[in-house]
């Protein structure tokens, strides 16, 4: 990948990656640190990027994932004063929550992408569990309309998840 493409990828994806880092680390400064490190790593490894294997976006998420996992390892060890070495690199229990956090972030991002109209319906009926009749009354539309909007809202979600690289 030429250097310019890494800079281009920064412009295209850094906002989303930063959002994910904020969610994962719960801290803006640390999120900045993670995203900066992610792109420096991407820069250094740019010749190894293979579009046959996955998209540029997926590649960046994979790098960020490792950066955040490393930061978690470093930080969790600090207070206890355990030295950092190579023997403790595998913390399997960390893996699962991380994958889950990443997927949760994709779902959140998908919800942001589907637009207010779809989002409103999905949020009210699927996330808040409000009865269709109540939502229909609030919006001044027939109940059947809410049903069909749930259908189109979920379809939009599915498309957005696919766009975000989610494979069912």
């Amino acid at each position: 990948m030429p250097g310019e493409q890494v800079r281009e990828a920064y412009r295209a994806h850094s906002g989303e990656l930063f959002g994910f880092a904020c969610r994962s680390l719960g801290d803006r400064d640390r999120a900045e640190e993670a995203v900066q490190e992610c792109f420096l790593k991407a820069w250094r490894a740019r010749d190894k990027f293979d579009p046959e294997i996955g998209s540029e976006r997926t590649w960046l998420y994979a790098i960020l994932r490792n950066v955040i996992a490393d930061m978690g390892r470093t930080d969790s060890r600090r207070p206890s004063g355990i030295p950092l070495d190579d023997s403790g690199d595998s913390l399997p229990s960390v893996e699962q929550p991380f994958e889950r956090a990443m997927l949760a972030w994709q779902v959140e991002e998908a919800l942001r992408r589907i637009g207010e109209r779809h989002r409103q319906i999905v949020v009210e009926t699927c996330l808040r569990g409000r009865p269709y009749a109540e939502v229909a009354a609030a919006l001044g539309v027939p109940e059947g309309t809410i049903k069909s909007r749930v259908y189109y809202g979920l379809r939009a979600m599915r498309d957005a998840m696919e766009e975000l690289g989610y494979e069912s």
């Binding site: 850094s14 906002g15 930063f18 959002g19 904020c22 803006r28 999120a31 900045e32 995203v35 889950r100 997927l103 949760a104 779902v107 959140e108 919800l111 942001r112 207010e116 989002r119 999905v122 949020v123 699927c126 996330l127 808040r128 979920l154 979600m157 599915r158 998840m161 069912s168």
Partner: peptide, 23 residues
């Protein structure tokens, strides 16, 4: 797709229409 919605933290529901934090 619907089952993925369970991953959304209920505390975030209200902020889904708000812009994300900026660096």
């Amino acid at each position: 797709t619907g089952s993925l919605l369970e991953l959304i933290d209920p505390a975030l529901i209200g902020s889904l229409s708000e812009p994300l934090p900026n660096p």
